[in-house]
Design a protein around this nucleic acid. Structure first.
Lengths: 160, 160
DNA sequence: TCAAAGTGGATAAACTTTATCCACGAATAC
DNA sequence: GTATTCGTGGATAAAGTTTATCCACTTTGA
């Protein structure tokens, strides 16, 4: 019960795109370099973001990725959904059916439990939808990533 | 972002204890047999439940496990907490510090994101606390597990 | 004295996450 | 056309987590 790291990566990616001056497309290699992951891996994340509609992509020379809409129109739920998906936290494996199949059949309300967990989860998602990235992140001054020296994994102080 | 199976197992265990006639202690081997896990593994789960205060244990002959309080006094949050713990869903790995450390320092509200996720999570837990097992499970007729033939993994229709 | 829980450590099987590399095809600026 | 960049997919693997198992020994209580 922990976020995938993809959520944090996505937040970084979206922030990078928001920081880009003049909404110029940002090449994937600039992003993968910053995040210190392979370009091929980063592209798979970007593809998800494009399919989900958070980001647009331009092919060809001078191509790259841009935000599909301003940060203020992107909610935490958008970011959560694109990485974690719509699947419920609580997923029944049918264990209780196994355990109480014979001799005891009192689970006439067997999915009452699942529904209850589901209701709480809906509340969670609903709250996430009320936060947008615009209100949570402050973009002071934009930059041109192209002109910033690429920083590899080895040049950073990684504190974990 | 998915429940551990321990939650489902715990719900089964608590249900078994609630079904036991006369609140007689239930031996761990009866429970592990039903759940089709090793007794030593089950005991580790039971220990957690005891430490967390959901269940009491009696040593010695005629010993076993009993509910520490009625189902109506056990909430979904209790079950959730005992298995999933108190750790937040969102855990920062410091990636954004890495990515934006130099050249860009606009993350003055860098934990605004974490706080937002945390707020939604609090809401989730709060809702879980409002459900108790008494209202979600119906106990028709109690049984004496001791007198019910032990059912092993091989005798059950496992549908996964 | 026996049956049960309590405790801890080593180990492992299965699964999920988090990637990497490679090899294409498709679009676009120049 | 040609170089650059995204689009797509598959095979593979490194690392981490979950979900256990087995064993050995201690403590508790009828």
């Amino acid at each position: 019960m922990k976020f995938k790291s993809g959520i944090e990566q996505t937040l970084c990616i979206l922030t990078m795109l928001a920081l880009q001056k003049n909404s110029k497309p940002v090449r994937s290699s600039l992003i993968s370099g910053r995040l210190a992951v392979s370009d091929s891996y980063l592209k798979k994340i970007m593809r998800q973001l494009v399919v989900f509609g958070l980001v647009t992509s331009d092919s060809g020379r001078e191509g790259g990725f841009r935000l599909a809409r301003p940060l203020s129109k992107i909610t935490l739920l958008d970011v959560f959904d694109v990485i974690e998906g719509k699947a419920q936290f609580a997923q029944s494996s049918g264990l209780s059916c196994q355990v109480f199949s014979d001799h005891v059949q009192d689970l006439n309300r067997k999915d009452a439990l699942m529904n209850a967990f589901g209701e709480a989860e809906q509340l969670y998602r609903k709250r996430l939808k009320q936060f947008n990235l615009g209100q949570l992140l402050t973009i002071d001054h934009q930059v041109d990533w192209e002109s910033i020296i690429k920083v590899g994994r080895e040049h950073l102080n990684v504190t974990t």
